[in-house]
């Protein structure tokens, strides 16, 4: 079991390394540089700046230096905003995105899992049809349609929440709901099919033959196995929440990471882009690790089967 965890950790580090390398070289392949933008900088100034940033050195030296810095935990200064550290920019906007993402994830799981369980247990009932139609709507109507519609209905017409902005807890409601919807829909569908699969297993029949009440059968015998596919989905779900949050932050004008992520490539802000990619990579790797750990906890067979 520890072997499994260690190998996952190593794999996670490998993923981050690959990601960082790809990013580093792709970003430097792009035409233009951080200093060739609207505001023309005198040539000698640019040369000084490039030297200061180490951009005058051969690319493999830059790469080595960057890796060394990252290993030390230094993400360097932003190339566009010379007086600010990347870690400072991220430190300012990340908590906003994080709060949004965590809320959305919580809503997605809190709504998706019970909906899926109920749909599976009451198969072919109105509850099943209602939640599955709801799930399809969640999957097929993109967030950037639902977001504005929610904003109009609850923000403009009903006036319950602010349409855009950030500052008080109420501002979190609409964006988090919008962001959670597609993920909740996927989770509900997965929970349903996972539970149906488990409920058709022989050991559920054994449990019934033991005289266990139906409710206990579902909570104690079926749920664990039924959640295995859902747990495996945590990693992708988290990635989906991240990409969704870029859209949501744009719609609701939330000062999170989205703006930096969207602007950094165009600005050729190498260090900021690398920093963001590294941060998101780490988060997704962590989410995948969490999903692996949860799977080990849920599924005793995985503890021994995956050891080799």
């Amino acid at each position: 079991m520890f072997k499994v965890i260690i190998s996952r950790l190593l794999q996670g580090l490998l993923v981050l390394f690959v990601l960082l390398t790809i990013t580093f070289f792709i970003v430097r392949q792009l035409p233009g540089s951080p200093y060739q933008q609207e505001r023309k900088i005198p040539e000698h100034v640019e040369r000084v700046l490039r030297e200061k940033m180490g951009l005058d050195k051969p690319i493999y030296v830059q790469y080595g230096n960057y890796l060394a810095n990252v290993a030390r935990g230094d993400l360097l200064a932003s190339m566009k905003r010379e007086n600010r550290q990347v870690s400072e920019i991220i430190g300012q906007s990340f908590p906003v995105s994080f709060a949004l993402g965590v809320c959305a994830m919580a809503i997605a799981i809190g709504v998706g899992v019970p909906a899926g369980v109920i749909a599976a247990v009451k198969r072919n009932s109105w509850a099943d049809y209602a939640s599955m139609i709801g799930a399809l709507v969640g999957i097929c109507i993109p967030t950037f349609v639902i977001g504005p519609v929610l904003a109009i209905v609850f923000g403009v017409h009903l006036g319950w929440f602010r349409v855009a902005g950030w500052g008080n807890p109420g501002d979190l409601v609409l964006p988090a709901l919008t962001l959670a919807l597609p993920t909740a829909a996927y989770i509900a569908r997965m929970t349903r099919s996972g539970m149906l699969e488990i409920l058709s297993q022989d050991f559920i029949r054994t449990a019934r033959a033991k005289g266990i009440p139906e409710r206990t059968i579902i909570t104690r015998h079926a749920l664990r196995g039924g959640l295995v596919p859902v747990v495996a989905f945590i990693g992708p779900a988290f990635a989906a929440i991240i990409s969704g949050s870029f859209v949501i932050e744009t719609i609701f004008q939330i000062p999170g990471m989205g703006q930096h992520f969207v602007n950094a490539p165009g600005d050729r802000d190498y260090t900021l882009l690398q920093g963001i990619v590294l941060l998101y990579g780490t988060l997704i790797v962590a989410a995948n690790l969490l999903s692996d750990l949860l799977n080990l906890w849920l599924n005793p067979r995985a503890r021994t089967a995956d050891g080799n």
Binding site: D202, T206, L298
Partner: peptide, 25 residues
Amino acid sequence: TLRTIRGKRISMIFQDPMSSLNPYM
């Protein structure tokens, strides 16, 4: 009523012991 009889007064064992025990417990 059946539930109070099942597993208490009348028990059952099944064909495939591989799948009839809960693998998660």
